[in-house]
Simulated scan of single mutants.
Amino acid sequence: MAKYSHRIQADRRTVTSRGMYIYGNTVRQAEVMPQRQEEPRKEHKKKKLDRQILKNRRKAMRMNPAYVMFLSIAAVAALVVCVWYLQVRAELTSRTEHITELQQELADAKEENTTRYNVVMDSVNLEEVRDRAINDLGMGYATSDQIIEYQNPVNDYVKQYESIPKSGVLGQTTDK
Rank of each mutant, 00 (worst) to 15 (best):
Arg13Leu: 15
Lys46Met: 11
Val80Phe: 01
Ile134His: 03
Ala75Phe: 08
Thr100Gly: 13
Val158Gln: 05
Gly138Met: 11
Tyr85Pro: 00
Ile147Ser: 01
Ala107Val: 02
Ile53Arg: 12
Gln87Tyr: 02
Phe70Trp: 08
Arg12Pro: 06
Arg28Tyr: 05
Lys166Val: 04
Arg36Val: 13
Lys176Arg: 05
Ala75Tyr: 04
Gln146Cys: 02
Met139Ser: 05
Glu112Gly: 00
Tyr141Gln: 01
Val83Trp: 00
Glu112Thr: 07
Tyr4Leu: 13
Glu111Asn: 10
Gln172Leu: 14
Thr114Met: 05
Lys48Asp: 05
Val76Ile: 10
Ser167His: 12
Met33Asp: 04
Ile22His: 12
Glu43Asp: 02
Thr174Arg: 12
Ile164Leu: 12
Ile22Asn: 11
Glu43Met: 13
Lys3Gly: 10
Arg130Asp: 14
Met20Val: 10
Ser144Arg: 03
Ser163Thr: 10
Gln146Thr: 04
Asn113Thr: 03
Arg89Ser: 05
Ser5Gln: 14
Met121Leu: 10
Arg57Phe: 08
Glu101Arg: 10
Gln52Val: 01
Glu128Ala: 08
Ile147Tyr: 06
Gly171Lys: 07
Ile53Ala: 13
Asn64His: 06
Gln104Leu: 11
Arg36Thr: 13
Thr100Trp: 00
Glu101Met: 06
Arg132Leu: 14
Leu49Met: 15
Ser123Tyr: 03
Lys47Cys: 07
Asn56Pro: 03
Val129Ala: 09
Leu137Cys: 07
Ala133Leu: 14
Asn155Phe: 00
